[in-house]
Nucleic acid binder design. Structure first.
Length: 563
DNA sequence: GCCGTTTTCGGCCCGACTGTTTTCAGTCG
């Protein structure tokens, strides 16, 4: 909800300002922790009775939150904000400049924002400060140019192929024994800040050389014995860490993160008089595998997707997560009848090649004119064509469906008579995606409660890094979905990933059904399923709640699949 | 500022790399 986001931003900003002002790092961390908790919170913070129930939120923060909810303002935040030039927060974003330098530049060189930092670099003002040599200023100038031109974090689906290409290249370098990606990529986060690659090799020098000399590298930022960092032409930062084979597990654990997961893990080690770092767990000397380290700390192996310090340490055993191989159907796909690039038969062949038992053809409804949405008459003919194709292919069941628009007022884009002819109805919002949260909730609620709707497709309509999409009240939707036996979609397209991870978790906890679909338009789109599987893991979806696990009989047997 | 199966006070993760020093501060992840 946007109140949660607004408050999270306020706490993040307070943390940064406190850092610049030289306050205790623990106080800074406490504020960051509150910000994170608010970001992850699915329910609307303004509807909560006691916010101190949120881990990390204590008395002091609770008072501030209440102050904001009651008055629309937070006195302490405004005082803090007014105590430094507003532009200093941007200066913190420059790589290599941390809180100490920001404060020094501000107080001793009149730097108040990015522009005045640029001026201070150019006119030599910074060179007069202590510990500011030629090289440091050069680095700041370069980082500054990058901040001035760079944009958002990279989407998971854009970063993964880059990482794989680099790994494919490096694993052929002489001496390399193991190489893999770690970091937020391994955790399947929806966006990636940088790519982390971990390797062990018998020839460190050769690997470092090969890495820093890749064609795609525009700048080498650091090159040490065990750590190299480069920036690619695309602007993406890639870090390479080299470790001994025998310490690969400890290193993998450490470099996969998240930072918050690691901190809690190390704290657990300390309470057992042990010490955990990227080289192993001491004094028991365990380092080869992640499993062994978790085990010695009295924990089950924790899947990478949930290593966010959001309650995963409460797991008594490793959760039985859904894998790519478990998925045996896709219930949201397009053909050339609307805006897809495959015929019904080609779609079916793709599904057969992946070992699916069922594929649903769900072309767009009439309102999607730009996507060649089908008017009722064409849809009726399309249903006939799908039935014919289904009869001619024994290896797979082809369902006649449609991705039907949920119109802004919550009604559907086809009348009930036509909807009743379909095996499966995926109802999705496509237009009016800037509605108020209340309108969005009512709109989606109407679709969830419609007796002929099976799945709500990409419920918020967001496009990562581009469009915020709807902001409905998720707990309300989840409760209604559970009650009406309507599944919520996990759209696996890496630009969508909708529902998002925290919403998926809320859906699982609220008992609603989920369906991970690729929304395929082209053959390659089926491969996006892997991003949906990451999301399924991050949401801890269990097999019984994922309709993609259902056997054919459960999906068919009537004009409405019996979920 | 937050937290507690040792604690309501005293802790709060840990190491690599850089650039500047001549033993280390600052930044990053």
């Amino acid at each position: 909800m946007s109140t949660n986001t607004d408050l999270a931003n306020i706490f993040h900003t307070m943390a940064t300002i406190l850092e610049i002002k030289g306050e205790s790092g623990f106080k800074v961390n406490a504020n960051t922790k509150v910000a994170r908790a608010l970001e992850d919170l699915v329910e609307d913070v303004s509807s909560m009775e006691d916010v101190t129930k949120i881990p990390g939120v204590g008395k002091s923060s609770a008072t501030k939150i209440k102050n904001y909810l009651d008055t629309g303002k937070m006195v302490e935040f405004e005082e803090l904000r007014d105590s430094i030039p507003a532009g200093l927060l941007d200066v913190m974003r420059v790589q290599g400049i941390g809180p100490k330098k920001v404060r020094q530049f501000w107080q001793e060189a009149d730097v108040t924002d990015i522009e005045s930092l640029r001026a201070a670099v150019d006119d030599g003002r910074l060179a007069n400060l202590p510990r500011m040599g030629k090289k440091t200023i050069e680095n700041i100038a370069q980082a500054l140019a990058f901040v001035e031109s760079s944009g958002d974090r990279t989407r998971l689906g854009d970063a993964m192929p880059i990482a794989q290409e680099i790994i494919t290249f490096l694993e052929r370098v002489e001496g390399v024994t193991t190489i893999t990606f770690a970091g937020s990529l391994r955790r399947g986060k929806e966006t990636i800040g940088d790519i982390d690659i971990l390797a062990s090799t018998e020839n460190q020098e050769a690997l470092a050389q090969a890495f820093c000399n890749m064609d795609s590298v525009s700048m080498v930022q650091a090159k040490g014995e065990t750590k190299c960092s480069v920036r690619l032409n695309s602007g993406m930062q890639v870090d390479l860490r080299v470790v001994d084979e025998g310490q690969f597990g400890a290193a993998l654990l450490y470099f996969t993160g998240s930072k918050e997961h690691n901190i809690t893990l190390r704290e657990k080690a300390i309470t057992q008089d042990k010490k955990l770092n990227e080289y192993g767990l001491e004094p028991v000397n365990i380092s080869e595998t992640e499993e062994a380290i978790y085990q010695d700390l009295g924990l089950p192996w924790i899947p990478t997707e949930i290593r966010e310090d959001r309650g995963e340490f409460d797991c008594k055993r490793t959760p039985n997560l859904i894998t790519l191989q478990n998925i045996k159907s896709d219930l949201h796909c397009h053909t050339t009848a609307s805006d897809g690039h495959m015929s019904i038969e080609e779609l079916a062949m793709q599904a057969i090649a992946r070992g699916y038992h069922t594929i649903a053809v769900t072309d767009h409804s009439q309102s999607q004119a730009q996507a060649n949405g089908l008017k009722p008459d064409r849809m009726r003919m399309h249903i006939d064509a799908i039935r014919k194709a289904n009869a001619s292919m024994s290896e797979i069941t082809i369902l006649a469906g449609s991705e039907v628009d949920i119109l802004p007022d919550g009604t559907l884009d086809y009348d009930d008579e036509l909807l009743a002819l379909l095996d499966i109805v995926v109802a999705s919002p496509h237009a009016a995606l800037t509605q108020s949260p209340d309108q969005a909730t009512q709109r989606l609620l109407a679709a969830i409660e419609h007796p002929l709707v099976h799945i709500i497709g990409h419920p918020t309509g967001r496009i990562i890094n581009k469009r915020k999409g709807l902001e409905p009240d998720i707990p309300t939707l989840v409760a209604a979905a559970a009650k009406n036996n309507t599944a919520l979609e996990i759209n696996a397209n890496s630009y969508r990933l909708d529902l998002r991870d925290t919403h998926v978790r809320a859906a699982v906890n609220g008992g609603s059904l989920l369906a991970v679909n690729t929304d395929s338009h082209r053959p390659d789109d089926f491969n996006q399923l892997r991003y949906g599987i990451f999301l399924v893991g991050r949401g801890l979806v269990i097999p019984g709640k994922c309709i993609k696990f259902f056997i054919p009989d459960a999906l068919l047997n009537s004009s409405r699949p019996d979920f």
